[in-house]
């Protein structure tokens, strides 16, 4: 790892200012992904701005919404009693991710910014358009068991590895950011992006904006929710496919629904069309099956990951079935 300068920011404003000027500077908080990437020489910042002293750790329940500070730890959110009560889907998704040690370190903002786990991205001897633009995509035609079935491009078929983000995408969250030009809000589903021709960009942050919090509007998804994570071992593994399902069921009728998938695209894959289909329908396996088939519209495999075309819809049915029977 290259040595670097490290400074500690005492306010979000100073953090943003101190980083904006320098080309190779980055924020660091939990470090669970960044330190790993630095060890692998995937990223090599000259300067790190330690933001852990910033006052961005609070979980607040405001009128009409829940605000979660960007520096709140994954475990802190997952085990917060009020979060478990109001947003159980989020708590489940967080608990499905990584290990407890990592959840103790990783922050909400950092979780959103974690990079893909694609092996070609991680191995600096391999071609990867995300790491080195225009160097090619190793995964296309290579080993792509973990890779995308939705929204990929000829440049990149990597997936976003987060569990938490799948739940946040489903729950209509928004991201609050602060940059040199001030503060702004980004819809969570617009935060991560599809690779297109510029897979080096994971998200829509500009000019090294700092994520300050995530906000979740109040909802009725407190009972019939499920986060289903399918992986190669029982714990401590990234998702092959995951499904965040939240239902608001009255008298066996689906009043409202949120559905998103993880492990299938460059971003958490929100299924709004499927949600529209399900609204007003009576709960049944047949309806869930139809929803799942609809969800697969436009999906394609790249060889090793073809099984996701079967696993994906099965997982949707499973998640909806479990959620609806709670």
């Amino acid at each position: 790892m290259k040595n670097f300068q490290i400074i500690r920011a005492l306010s979000s404003k100073s953090a943003v200012i101190s980083i904006a000027k320098e080309k190779e500077a980055m924020f660091i908080a939990g470090g669970t992904n960044l330190v790993d990437l630095m060890k692998k020489n995937v990223v090599a910042p000259d300067k790190l701005v330690d933001i852990t002293a910033l006052d961005l750790k609070k979980i607040e329940f405001l009128t009409g919404k829940t605000s979660i500070g960007a520096l709140a730890k994954n475990s802190q959110v997952a085990e917060d009693k009020a979060i478990i009560e109001k947003h159980p889907l989020l708590a489940m998704a967080l608990t499905a991710g990584a290990s407890q040690q990592i959840r103790h370190m990783a922050t909400v903002g950092g979780n959103m910014l974690q990079r893909t786990r694609c092996s070609y991205f991680y191995n600096t001897d391999m071609p990867c358009n995300k790491r080195v633009p225009k160097s090619g995509c190793g995964a296309i035609g290579g080993s792509n068991r973990m890779h995308a079935i939705f929204g990929a491009s000829d440049s990149c078929i990597a997936v976003h590895p987060s569990d938490m983000c799948v739940a946040l995408a489903a729950l209509d969250a928004t991201v609050q950011v602060e940059g040199p030009k001030g503060k702004r809000e980004i819809k969570f589903t617009d935060f991560h992006r599809l690779p297109g021709n510029t897979p080096e960009k994971d998200n829509t942050l500009q000019n090294k904006e700092l994520i300050t919090s995530v906000e979740i509007p109040n909802n009725n998804f407190t009972k019939n929710v499920h986060y289903l994570k399918v992986r190669d071992r029982s714990s401590y593994a990234f998702a092959l496919v995951s499904v965040a399902a939240a239902l608001d069921i009255q008298n066996n009728t689906i009043n409202d629904v949120r559905l998103a998938m993880g492990g299938v695209a460059h971003k958490p894959w929100r299924l709004t069309e499927v949600e529209e289909f399900l609204k007003g329908k009576t709960v049944s396996e047949t309806i869930f099956r139809q929803a799942a088939d609809l969800a697969m519209k436009g999906a394609r495999g790249y060889g090793d990951n073809d099984f996701k075309l079967t696993l994906g819809p099965n997982a949707i049915v499973e998640a909806l079935t479990i959620a609806s029977s709670k």
Partner: peptide, 27 residues
Amino acid sequence: CDHGQCGACTVHVNGTRILSCLTLASM
């Protein structure tokens, strides 16, 4: 493993278990 993938480096920092391999001492 030195990459946060095995847990062998688990220590307690301020009473919480964390992975020391992904923790910068300077922080």
